[in-house]
């Protein structure tokens, strides 16, 4: 933390309990602007909870989150303003099914950013082109494949011009042949310098795009290192065990 201004996400000693279940057991994490962080770990290790605590979709039981220096609280005005700067992509896409692809991308621009209809539509088309499906602008989500839906969801988040993008297992619900189209978009985004925190099991993506890789287990960060360090030189037994299980095939 030599230059704290550059730390766009700071999570300090985050604990999160769901009833008696401890999802996070004191996690601290700082993310430098422009870096791509991939979070891996077995299911139930708290990776998604950590991600959801960053934009306060889950309120931490204790601990502090700073986004670009702003302390997150349950103050709704601060929450809404800060969340507008943090795009989030969900495992199950969560597109708005009653709206077309383009309307999905314009809604929050209009309501939150206060952009005019024309401006929002223009930006929506740019973003849909960026994710490679401008021709689906007038189609409802139900008529799109999983990969297309996820790309619309990414466009929806990008249209807000976020400083940070959070990805919560964005390819886990996709058929294998659609994973690549989503990862390609994410890879482009990483190369453009977007700050990204991705919970993902796509090791190929982690190797290609990640600046740092975090291995979590039992609500704790077990290892925080480079992709090379994690895959070729894991320090902890738990990390080695996990990697041997997922890299076997």
């Amino acid at each position: 933390m030599s230059d704290p201004k550059n730390m766009i996400i700071e999570a300090v000693d985050i604990y999160k309990y769901f009833g008696d279940v401890q999802a996070l057991n004191g996690v601290s994490l700082t993310v430098e602007a422009g870096k791509v962080i991939v979070v891996v770990g077995p299911s139930g290790s708290g990776k998604s909870t950590l991600l959801r605590c960053i934009n306060y979709l889950e309120t931490p039981t204790s601990g502090e989150i700073y986004i670009d220096g702003q302390l997150m609280t349950n103050d709704q005005r601060i929450l809404n303003e800060t969340r507008a700067e943090i795009g989030m992509v969900f495992q199950l896409f969560n597109l708005f099914p009653h709206l077309t692809a383009q309307e999905n991308v314009t809604l929050a621009q209009n309501v939150v950013r206060g952009r005019s209809k024309e401006e929002a539509q223009e930006i929506a088309m740019q973003q849909l082109e960026r994710v490679g499906i401008p021709e689906k602008a007038d189609v409802k989500p139900a008529q799109l494949s999983g990969g297309q839906q996820q790309r619309v969801a990414i466009a929806r988040a990008l249209a807000m011009n976020p400083k940070i993008m959070l990805f919560d297992e964005p390819t886990s619900a996709l058929d294998p042949e659609m994973i690549k189209e989503v990862l390609d978009v994410m890879l482009d985004l990483a190369q453009e310098g977007m700050t990204m925190v991705c919970v993902s099991h796509e090791m190929g993506f982690a190797r290609a795009a990640a600046d740092e890789v975090i291995f979590m287990d039992n609500g704790l960060i077990v290892e925080h290192t480079t992709p090379d360090g994690l895959f070729n030189n894991p320090q902890e037994e738990r990390t080695k065990l996990f990697l041997s299980q997922i890299l076997q095939h």
Binding site: Q76, N80, N94
Partner: peptide, 19 residues
């Protein structure tokens, strides 16, 4: 997930309900 997606975009509770 619908409410979460709307809130994650910075929409308020009322805006998420409404739209």
């Amino acid at each position: 997930g619908q409410m979460e997606a709307a809130r994650s975009l910075g929409m308020s509770y009322a805006q998420s309900m409404r739209y």
